[in-house]
């Protein structure tokens, strides 16, 4: 499959300390790639590099190349890049406004003002995020009144509303109960028909259940990257084997 994001020799420093070391990876389109590895190994850092959320942190230095759609992300307009490469955070972070306004925030940001079009986008995004039925009667209500799992699906809807091509998800289910987790997983599986998903997870079962490819990070390095089945059943690297069999981490 054609890669949509490629990183070559990517290194990242927070001030003096190096968080990513020579990462080489090609993420294929319309698939789910899981990033796994012990805490502090650089998964979030790598994910945030892909839509340049690291730009917000002072003192970050990056070398190497990252291409989205065949062009270096650092040469692209950062706001357009983030429109194409959306993000769902670990902790649900709906804005303190109505459910409708949350979903419409992105489209409005990118210049859509027409009420009817916004209505359509909001409905479609909420349906895609499998939360439409739960909120359709309370679109004008404040989003902070939703449960944690609903908030996270709302955040997914909010990200989908700008029609990204890639969705970056940083442990999107770690703050959720098992049923909400299941819903998000089903959602991810459904979304990969239209979107490319990169998901960070600490849950090996989750990676195994939903992902097509898995990347194993350790201490800032990408140790191994391949088909999920192969990583979990027949890893090439001893450290990967130790990790996926639960021997450390």
């Amino acid at each position: 499959m054609k890669p949509i994001i490629t990183a070559k020799d990517l290194c990242l420093w927070y001030g003096q300390s190096q968080a990513l070391k020579n990462i080489d990876i090609a993420i294929p389109e319309q698939s789910i790639t899981a990033l796994i590895g012990p805490s502090g190994c650089g998964k979030s850092t790598f994910l945030k590099t892909l839509n340049r959320m690291n730009d917000l942190i002072p003192g970050v230095k990056i070398t190497g190349t990252v291409e989205y759609n065949g062009q270096s992300i650092f040469d692209q307009d950062v706001n357009l890049l983030r429109k194409e490469v959306g993000m769902v955070f670990q902790k649900p972070n709906p804005f303190p406004m109505s459910i409708y306004d949350n979903v419409a925030y992105g489209p409005r940001t990118h210049g859509i003002r027409d009420r009817k079009r916004l209505d359509e986008i909001v409905e479609r995004s909420l349906r895609d995020a499998a939360i439409w039925d739960e909120v359709k009667d309370r679109l004008k209500k404040n989003a902070l009144g939703l449960s944690g799992g609903q908030q996270q699906r709302l955040c997914i809807a909010r990200a989908l509303a700008v029609q990204p091509r890639v969705l970056l998800m940083d442990e999107p289910t770690s703050a959720l109960d098992p049923i909400s987790t299941l819903k998000i997983e089903e959602l991810a599986a459904k979304l990969k028909d239209k979107y490319t998903i990169v998901i960070v997870t600490h849950n090996m079962q989750q990676a195994l259940r939903i992902s097509d490819h898995t990347a194993f990070f350790l201490l800032g390095e990408l140790v191994e990257y391949g088909d999920t089945d192969q990583i979990f059943t027949n890893p090439a690297d001893q450290r990967t084997n130790d990790y996926v069999t639960g021997r450390f981490g």
Partner: peptide, 10 residues
């Protein structure tokens, strides 16, 4: 909140 908004390309 800021991250969420920046993440949408604002």
């Amino acid at each position: 909140y800021r991250e969420g908004a920046f993440g949408l390309g604002a």
